[in-house]
Design a protein around this nucleic acid. Structure first.
Lengths: 210, 210
DNA sequence: TTGACATGTCACCAACCGGTGACTACCTTG
DNA sequence: CAAGGTAGTCACCGGTTGGTGACATGTCAA
């Protein structure tokens, strides 16, 4: 009569590693960043926490691995779109809208962005570095006419980009922001239309006013 | 020879209550809301934590009391400004800019707003309620022409308001956002100028385009 | 003076946290 | 078969957290 204490220990390191990584993601979107810890991840993965130390070296390296592995940030192509656009207003609006849609499809990324606006953490630093590289890569593809549009394009795009990002973050927990239903697709259609209008009017009338 | 264990116990309940309340604020701005707890507040106030339970009934009631006490949200007058404005573009820009300045002067409020984006909490609910009331109060003072400007004013102001708020939150930990130095007054001047330009062009050309 | 009450100190609790060492079970290589 | 490494379990450590009960000390009124 065998009294084996370990009925199905699986005994598959790669699978265990994968379970731990997956647990990070699901725990993140379900409980939020505050719940992320060695004990919690181990519980979520159904695994002893000592394996986290053995396989990853601790929580921070695990988060690094997780951030590097998943398609955390949208690719440059996803933001640039397929066909080239010359009209600066359409170009700007297209970039903003594709950026919006890319983030809207990535709840993990959204969660980390939320954390980043609030607290400093090794993971947010890691991911910020990846994002910076992507951002520079993207900026390099933009035509120089974009920068000399007759108004402060940096401040303009900072304002709109920040606005979209903030609304995305709020949409995780709130249904309506300033009367706009950010919990539904209809609200985002209205916001995309607003982005279109803003870009169009800024770039087309940029020469009229100083 | 007296061996009094309590050299200066102060013995002033009101003062102790005040010290606890003050400790919440200073701890919040210095360490962030993650560090808020019974032990931390008691330490910060130089007070035994049992007094927090005795005087406030726990951490959440303490936070409620704190949120209700301080001038957390700017008054309606502070947002509306002194002199009435009829031009809708100037009116909108003025509202946004005064809102921005009011929040920039309130680090406590900013910290709780940041908190609100990542977690639900009794305190954030309390403050959200106060904010809602102020917001409605403010909206009631705006002329109806504001709503029928020929474009989606709600989406427009949601986007700009959210953008400013997001940049405010990011400025707590980051110096530059999209090339704009949000850590310095110069960056905020540029952003205010961008708000002016956006409002001006949206309201002045609203009839030209659909 | 005596008692009631308010104020504050202290010790303690269970629960959780991150982290580590010792162990068993298994598979592979000789 | 034996040896060694790998995968996983378990028990434990010190420290911190939220929370409570017992107690000392001061103040004030009867």
């Amino acid at each position: 009569m065998r009294v084996s204490k370990t009925p199905i220990p699986a005994r598959d390191a790669d699978a265990t590693r994968a379970r731990i990584m997956a647990a990070v993601g699901s725990l993140l979107v379900r409980e939020g960043f505050g719940a992320l810890g060695v004990n919690a991840v181990a519980r979520e993965a159904g695994v002893d926490k000592v394996l986290i130390y053995r396989y990853f070296g601790g929580m921070d390296p695990l988060l690094e691995a997780w951030g590097n592995a998943s398609d955390f940030w949208p690719s440059v192509e996803e933001i640039l779109g397929t066909e080239p656009e010359t009209d600066p207003a359409r170009l700007a609006a297209g970039l903003l809208k594709r950026h919006l849609r890319a983030l809207r499809a990535r709840p993990h990324t959204l969660e980390v962005l939320a954390w980043e606006t609030v607290a400093r953490h090794p993971l947010t630093a890691i991911l910020a570095r990846i994002r910076e590289a992507r951002s520079e890569q993207l900026m390099a593809t933009l035509p120089p006419s974009f920068r000399e549009a007759g108004f402060d394009v940096e401040a303009f795009s900072a304002l709109l980009g920040a606005g979209l990002q903030h609304l995305l973050l709020r949409s995780r927990t709130t249904d309506v922001f300033n009367g706009v239903p950010i919990g539904t697709g209809e609200g985002w259609l209205r916001l995309e239309a607003a982005v279109d209008a803003l870009c169009s009017r800024m770039f087309s009338t940029s020469a009229i006013r100083t």
